[in-house]
Design a protein around this nucleic acid. Structure first.
Length: 498
RNA sequence: GACUUGGUAGCUCAGCUGGUUAGAGCAUCUCACUUUUAAUGAGAGGGUCCUGGGUUCGAGUCCCAGCCAGGUCACCA
């Protein structure tokens, strides 16, 4: 293995530490009394503390030095004075160990006393330090000046995603994004738990990948000798649980879809699905706008959030626009007056590619996707989707041909999808059958018929409303990110060649 | 998958119509410096110019193929 000059120096230092009887990778616990932000928030001089972390920089001035120690909360300044850590004649600990053999990126533990420097920086005067772990590779040397300008940022997206550990070490904003992600999920979970809804786990490996229109990843179970699929959705399992008598169930589900990747799609992604009995999609709209208002508030302290330079207002209520009105407003075509051929002509007239496999629902979906979707920047519920693009949704109570379904759009991106769930087993069977016909026409994303799911509905499912929220996308909306890779710790990449 | 932009030191980047030994800042190494904070001052080292072909007296630079990534589009949530 070829080592860079800096790596060779560090490997040499590692050996010299060992030669001095210092274990560069000690096993024993290091007791920490404080962490950086806590210590700064409640700062008093003259307090004995022990801190541990990564040494991010050093400023050596002869017989005294300053260093930045970075822990999980932030950074804290250390002051190391030669004669204080080496009171006797032997100055090896300072002159050799600290100045020569330690490097940026090494983990150290220190014990010392708090004080304020001449310029008022809260610091720890180090009395003892211990090598906790040696770094062989140099971290990128990112610096921030007094005006907050970042110099020599570690910014190459490929390197950042492939070596997220480095990205997290040197780019504080990245860490913040994932702290926020966790907070968003925690806020939702707390809200649902307060309602008494049950968090559940359902199968990731499924014999029939159902609940959505998408291409699955296929795998094989050796012992059973059967094909299995990674789930594209968990919807049908959660509904089985409603059949089983739970009144509210939810799951933060990792789903897998074998499709393209771009800044809003990763092959694996997280959807929060929630099903609540005796509710309908109108109730769900209210529940969602209240939830998102609450989440925005818990993350930002207010419901107005800046996203890609625009302010998004998450305070309820959100606009409600029917699919028909959305298309009417944006294209002046009234889908109520158009049959399949008419829709196909309308699409062609608007420059939308169509093919023979597209049914009425798919054509309407194209019209909306191409000409309307991107216009909904503020949170908007698009409601009442045509029956044939919503095979799991109850037909609309008073609009024939439509369903009780909505999708939530924010910044032109679909963030949630919800319906009054179809619980009529006869109707559901017919919908599955028409999906099967679509498959025969060439639609490779049409749904499979799930006989067990149909059987469960035949035992009776209460009226239920369900929703799926794209958690990754929601996190994007709330952290001012426009790429899904920025909200996934390890976005999918083509494997690296070593 | 298509189009497009890029890949040069550990990091961020220059490198002109092809022309000596490929540069800068930070980082690294050596020396100085006991309250600095993008520490400072002096000096030094560090390169598979993504890979493989080709054109040429000569290629980081031009051509072809490939690999990886970003962006746009297609597909999708």
């Amino acid at each position: 293995m070829i080592r860079s000059e800096q790596e060779q120096v560090r490997l040499g230092s590692l050996q010299q530490l060992r030669d001095l009887g210092i274990n560069p990778f000690p096993a024993e616990e290091f007791l920490v009394s404080h962490r950086s932000e806590g210590l700064r928030a409640d700062f008093k001089e003259g307090v004995e503390v022990s801190l541990a972390g990564r040494m991010m920089s050093r400023r050596i001035m002869g017989k005294a030095s300053f260093a930045e120690l970075k822990d999980s909360q932030g950074s804290f300044q250390l002051y190391i004075n030669r004669d204080e850590i080496c009171p006797g004649e032997d100055k090896t600990l300072y002159n050799s160990v600290f100045k020569k053999l330690l490097d940026r990126g090494d983990f150290i533990g220190v014990k010392g006393v708090t004080f304020l420097t001449k310029v008022g920086e809260p610091s720890v005067k180090v009395l003892e330090f211990k090598v906790l772990s040696k770094a062989i590779r140099p971290l990128p040397a990112v610096k921030t000046d007094d005006d907050g300008n970042v110099h020599d940022a570690f910014s190459d997206p490929e390197l950042r995603y492939r070596m997220r550990y480095v990205d997290l070490c040197v780019n504080d904003k990245v860490k913040e994004t994932f702290v926020t992600r966790s907070k968003i999920i925690r806020t939702i979970r707390e809200a649902f738990d307060n309602e008494g809804w049950l968090e559940v786990d359902t199968p990731v490996l499924q014999a029939i990948p159902g609940g959505a229109a998408a291409r699955p990843f296929a795998t094989h179970h050796n012992a059973l000798d059967i094909p299995l699929y990674l789930r594209i959705a968990n919807e049908l399992y959660l509904k089985r649980l409603i059949v089983g008598g739970f009144e509210g169930v939810y799951e933060f589900a990792r789903n897998f879809r074998n499709e393209g990747m771009d800044r809003t799609h990763n092959p694996e992604f997280t959807i929060l699905e929630l099903y609540v009995a005796y509710k309908d999609y109108n109730w769900m709209m209210k529940t969602m706008e209240e939830l998102l208002g609450k989440v925005a508030k818990s993350v930002h302290g207010k419901t107005q959030v800046v996203l890609a330079g625009q302010e998004i207002d998450f305070s309820p209520p959100y606009a409600r626009v029917t699919m028909r009105d959305a298309i009417l407003e944006n294209t002046s075509f009234d889908i109520d007056n158009l049959d399949e051929d008419g829709l196909r002509k309308a699409c062609k007239q608007l420059g939308i590619d169509v093919d023979a496999s597209m049914g009425r629902g798919k054509l309407i979906d194209e019209l909306f996707g191409e000409k309307c979707e991107h216009k909904y920047i503020q949170p908007t519920f698009i409601t009442d989707y045509p029956v044939d693009m919503s095979p799991l949704t109850k037909t609309h109570r008073d609009k024939p041909g439509y369903t009780e379904r909505f999708e939530l759009f924010i910044n032109g991106t679909e963030v949630a999808n919800a319906y009054s769930e179809l619980n009529d087993p006869i109707d559901q069977r017919e919908r599955f059958e028409s999906q099967a016909q679509l498959a025969e026409r060439g639609d490779d994303e049409a749904m499979f018929i799930d006989q067990d799911f149909l059987r469960s509905l035949e035992f009776g499912m209460p009226p239920t409303s369900g929703v799926g929220i794209g958690i990754d996308r929601l996190v994007m909306m709330l952290t001012d990110q426009t790429s899904i890779q920025e909200v996934l710790l390890f976005p999918q990449m083509r494997p690296e060649q070593f």
